[in-house]
Design a protein around this nucleic acid. Structure first.
Lengths: 241, 241
DNA sequence: ATCATAGTCGTCACACTGACGAGAACAGGG
DNA sequence: CCCTGTTCTCGTCAGTGTGACGACTATGAT
């Protein structure tokens, strides 16, 4: 694609040209493990290595639009299905050997992801265990290890004071399902009784639907929807037993 | 400036060229008011209007470097004197009528700022009252009103759980000076006795220097330095009397 | 019926909080 | 020198949130 038609006052030599991309940290929970979408790169640099999904921002789209589009291309999820928020930007010279590129990282949280289909510049896509990726420096191409770490830390912090954990759950969920989200993302184990008291006692967090689940073995659990509150008072604190 | 020499695999038509800038939200406290540095634009668009200081990222520098450089150019402050952190990025098409530009906003907090000297593309610089700027939509050029609002909200939130408030204070300060920071930034009034108990009781927040200030009228106050802790436990909560 | 499993409610001690009293250490004026 | 005003600092007390843990409830499996 060529440069856009120069509008009034446009001086193409007045600023250094950058490539701008959005990269996605797409998190979900599978088998009680926190997983992230990674794609296998089909072209150099890092051909054959795993990287976060992402791509160039088009000349006529906003940053959140670009993130939504890339998310749909890589996972088939629409913006209505997931929580999507900007995390941070990265622009160290040399982070991409091909060109000068600034990347805006977006965090996407989803309850259940459909089958992954590889994008145009990726030959494969899969879910990778987040702890394993973070424990192995260089597991991801470019500086994507840092992007992933920053995104995961953002998610971990926001569980405390926002209803973000419900983004990992289906529209209706039980307190135990919500607790598993906190336990998996934080990597801790929480007391079911205290957790139940806290989440049901925080005003506006959970709305009972009246229904309950019948599951194999054990008492049926009440089903909840997420409420209106965007900030939890009191918060769900991280240091629990 | 021209595009860099094409390295291997470089395809100049593969991505749309963007301008990348860093803009600064430089906050300080003057006369018990929260103030931000604004510059008067000397060129179109928005010539004569006030805007946040900032400028193009150079082809060979990292984003924090660019923020530090712009900060030094506009205020004379070096990175050692201030707290500097990235806030968010903005890239809506049309936000700058001249070209497609992505801006990374940085938050800078300083105790006492020297005289401001206008940068190359600004004809004047001054401190503006933050509440007044935020209360008047369109007070700032481009989308800088939103940048300022996001930066101020970041600062307000981080006062709760980080020692960020000390960035507004000189190296040695009293509990009352620190309390004034919280009161001014949050726009509330805090009980001096409870505040004293909380900040001195949070481990690692304040380190007594042993010295004290003699000031006009009233008992001398003990002087403190900031401690090592980066996260306050328990936090300094916002809803106080 | 009995057991295993999982969900929900209750109790207790402890920590933190907001509201407020009271003393300590200064400056300035009579 | 004493009094007063000001600011800093320490204490007290009731209300609330929290972690640890006991107890009860409601299902499926045997």
């Amino acid at each position: 694609m060529d440069a856009p038609a120069p509008p009034t006052g446009y001086r193409p030599d007045a600023f250094p040209p950058f490539a701008v991309t959005v990269d996605l940290i797409v998190l979900t929970i599978q088998d009680d493990r926190l997983r992230a979408v990674v794609v296998e790169r089909g072209v150099d640099p890092y051909a054959g290595a795993w990287a976060l999904p992402g791509g160039f921002v088009r000349i006529d789209e906003d940053l959140p639009e670009a993130a939504s589009r890339e998310l749909a291309e890589e996972t088939g999820l629409t913006a209505a299905d997931v929580h999507l928020e900007q995390v941070a930007s990265y622009g160290r010279p040399g982070r991409d050997p091909r060109m000068r590129v600034v990347t805006i990282a977006y965090l996407a949280l989803a309850a259940h992801l459909p089958e992954l289909r590889p994008g145009t510049d990726a030959s494969a896509a899969r879910f990778a265990d987040v702890d394993e990726l973070l424990g192995r420096p260089g597991a991801l191409a470019f500086d994507h290890g840092r992007l992933l770490a920053d995104g995961v830390e953002r998610a971990r912090a926001k569980l405390e004071y926002s209803p973000l954990a419900t983004a990992f759950c289906p529209p209706e969920f039980t307190v135990a399902e919500l607790r598993r989200v906190y336990e998996v993302v934080w990597g801790v184990s929480l007391d079911p009784r205290n957790f139940h008291r806290k989440v049901t006692g925080t005003p506006g967090f959970l709305v009972p639907t009246g229904r309950s689940t019948a599951r194999q073995g054990g008492r049926p659990a009440a089903l909840f929807r997420v409420g209106d509150t965007q900030v939890l008072h009191p918060p769900i604190t991280r240091r629990d037993g």
